[in-house]
Amino acid sequence: MKINTKKVLVTGADGFIGSHLTEELIRRGYDVKAFVYYNSFNSWGWLDNSPKEIMSHCEVFTGDIRDPHGVKAAMQGCDAVLHLAALIAIPYSYHSPDTYVDTNIKGTLNVLQAARELGIEKIVHTSTSEVYGTAKFVPITEEHPLQGQSPYSASKIGADQLAYSYYSSFNLPVSIIRPFNTYGPRQSARAVIPTIISQIAAGQTKIKLGSVHPTRDFNYVKDTVNGFISVLESNKSIGEVINIGSNYEISIGETARIIAELMDVELDIITDDTRLRPEKSEVERLWADNSKAKELLGWTPNYGGVTGFKKGLTETIEWFSLKDNLAQYKVGMYNL
Rank of each mutant, 00 (worst) to 15 (best):
K2Y: 01
N4P: 00
N4M: 01
K6N: 05
G12F: 05
G12D: 02
G12I: 06
E24Y: 05
D31E: 09
K33C: 03
V36L: 07
Y37I: 03
G45E: 05
S50M: 10
P51Y: 03
H57T: 06
C58F: 04
G63N: 09
D67N: 12
P68Y: 00
H69L: 06
M75I: 10
Q76A: 12
H83F: 06
A85C: 06
Y92R: 11
S93E: 04
Y94G: 01
P97Q: 07
T99P: 00
Y100V: 08
V101C: 02
N104D: 06
G107N: 06
G107F: 05
A114Q: 01
A114M: 03
L118Y: 06
E121L: 12
K122I: 02
K122D: 00
H125D: 14
T126C: 14
E130Q: 12
T134F: 08
A135E: 02
P139G: 07
T141P: 04
H144F: 08
H144G: 11
S150F: 07
Y152E: 03
K156W: 11
A159Q: 02
L162Q: 04
S165Y: 07
Y166M: 02
V174E: 01
I177V: 14
N181Q: 11
G184W: 10
Q187Y: 11
S188L: 11
R190F: 11
A191C: 10
P194T: 13
A202W: 15
T205Y: 13
H213F: 10
R216T: 01
R216M: 05
T224F: 14
G227E: 04
S230M: 05
N235G: 05
G239T: 05
E240F: 14
V241M: 14
I242M: 06
N243I: 08
N247H: 09
Y248N: 05
G253C: 08
T255S: 14
R257V: 11
R257E: 15
I258A: 09
M263V: 15
L267K: 12
R275C: 07
R277N: 08
V283S: 09
A288C: 15
D289N: 15
N290T: 08
N290W: 11
N290E: 10
S291H: 14
G298R: 13
T307L: 10
T307P: 00
F309H: 13
T314I: 10
I317A: 15
F320Q: 04
N325P: 10
L326M: 12
A327W: 08
Q328F: 03
Y329S: 06
V331T: 15
